[in-house]
Design a protein around this nucleic acid. Structure first.
Lengths: 330, 330
DNA sequence: CTGAAAGCGCTAACAG
DNA sequence: CTGTTAGCGCTTTCAG
């Protein structure tokens, strides 16, 4: 790879001048600029971001970290798309860290991100007390949280009104005449899970029909949905509707329902938290609480870039609304 | 951020010695090593990968690029997961480049990857003649292609036997008694699309029942599936089965089928290329050609790391088999 | 076993 | 308008 010296030599100037045209400084004679540009072309020269970054720590690295728990979850891929769009528009590249709730992995990734001197990080912490993330923030690293916050620390957050979304979903179920409404919940150590369960419970309690044996707790993955839905269906008097805590759980529950040849919504109704772009491809099309995942990613990206440019801007907590996508599963 | 000098100062040694313990060199007195380790702890020192990389170009950067066309396609997220797993095990982080068939984006990403001095790249080129990618390879950058190759250039490839997978799927449809088997194809500029269409056609021609008005071409996205499936259903004598060219097309087709209240498989059967972990959640559960996407990613990751460590190893073309996942949609 | 010193490729004063 | 030069944080001879 040709370096700046090669270009300078070829153009018959000093490296400083080369640097100047590269950085679009005004004070360069048009003739020399052209010569240099020509040399750059001929040598296929590309400036090394590594050297640049080393030299000036105040200059951006144009590298962003994204720390997400599960890239297999369509919600996160939409968030990621939103982030990526904004990143691209601002010339940032993304280091993707899919840490799958694995501590060692998170440690390694956080380490790398720091060592790479990224400009900022977007993170979806699985738990509010993630000390490593907090440390990173104390370090001065620009961070914005997505989906969930971090307790006891001021940080930009873009999330969704989980409780209200859940409440509305369950209220809709009630209004539609369902009486025994079950809930398949994700891990209760995850803030969103507890908010959703809270909304679910409040809707039911408002009508005085909450029954705690109708809620099942698992992790946040597909298998959990399969299994917990099975348990619910096996009950002496099974539920007539299910509110699933996230899209993986919904999908898992659907597998079980279809396997047992239950008709939706006649035998069992279902409503999911998290919409997917192919929810209409399900049979029947799924009624779901839509989180504006792509938008969340976009906003988070914007917030992060703002913060990078102005580290002292006060923290913003952004809460977006969910939307009940009414289709035919209940 | 504390630097090596700070550590050296604190431990009362020179930076050279600090570097030695960091790089696990043998020749360090146990006492000094301990002192240094202690200083590192106390100062929370983290070596800068940037400086390291700048210094020695022969040392790995532990950064891999992944260039994929569409992260919204579940196939690619599985590939990505496979890559990520291998990367993680080998201490590599990933710069994710989702270029969505956008030329400008590809240019920018390729630029960044080079400028970041990544160790290697895994790419799924949308077309076989991607000159930029070829140039990158000529540059000496370790690259492995996934899903599709690059014409006229020797490069590691891990792909799938698309033609055979398609053939088997259609043969299965024929064996099941379907007579008018349609095909919704992705962009014909993408090599995989042409291979799949070829398999489809061959299976039909083998039985002498190929009808070219039953194949519809679009791009490779959801909307295309929705639309083309609609066209097919509108035919004076519509097909009795559909073979969809990828999972987005399948999902799109399903939306249309459900919207029109057609029963699967009685009114119309469907078989998709690409399985998804939630194919069983569909109603009826979808019969699909499974590509071992995660495995593909893994193998690609392994191949890349091999190549990084031994740039002169001869190129390997790996073709993996598809598997027909028979469920209830046909 | 340890230290001094020379860069890696680039930016940013500082001179001219 | 342009060149000289001092580092950024680290690895790596080369001497001790």
């Amino acid at each position: 790879m040709a370096g700046m010296v090669d270009v300078a030599k070829r153009a018959g100037v000093s490296i400083a001048t080369v640097s100047r045209v590269l950085n679009k400084s005004e004070n360069v004679n048009e003739g020399t600029r052209l010569k240099i540009l020509k040399a750059i072309k001929e040598l296929k020269y590309r400036p090394s971001r590594v050297a640049k970054r080393l030299r000036s720590k105040d200059l951006p690295s144009y590298l962003l970290g994204v720390l997400i728990p599960d890239i297999q979850n369509p919600f996160y891929v939409d968030v990621l798309r939103g982030i990526e769009d904004i990143a691209y528009r601002n010339n940032y590249a993304i280091i993707m860290c899919n840490y799958g709730q694995d501590d060692k992995k998170e440690i390694m990734y956080l380490d790398i991100l720091q060592a790479e001197a990224i400009d900022g990080l977007i993170a979806a912490p699985v738990n509010e007390n993630d000390q490593r993330l907090k440390n990173l923030i104390h370090t001065g690293m620009p961070v914005v949280c997505v989906d969930r916050g971090l307790s006891g620390i001021d940080v930009d957050i873009v999330s969704v009104n989980n409780e209200e979304g859940a409440y509305n979903a369950v209220a809709y179920l009630i209004k539609s005449g369902y009486k025994r409404i079950a809930h398949i919940s994700g891990l209760m150590s995850i803030p969103t899970s507890v908010m959703r369960e809270k909304g679910y419970r409040r809707a039911l309690e408002d009508k005085g029909i909450y029954q705690k044996d109708l809620v099942r707790y698992g992790n946040s993955f597909y298998d959990s949905g399969v299994k917990l839905c099975g348990e619910l269906l096996d009950l002496p008097s099974p539920p007539d509707a299910i509110f699933a805590g996230n899209n993986l759980l919904t999908l898992g529950a659907l597998e079980t329902i279809h396997k047992r040849k239950k008709q939706i919504p006649n035998d069992i109704a279902i409503i999911g938290f998290d919409d997917m772009f192919w929810s209409s491809s399900l049979n029947p099309p799924l009624t779901a609480v839509r989180q504006p995942a792509y938008e969340i990613g976009k906003r988070a990206g914007e917030l992060l870039i703002q913060r990078i440019n102005d580290p002292r801007r006060p923290c913003i907590r952004m809460s977006m609304n969910t939307e009940l996508m009414i289709r035919n599963s209940c």
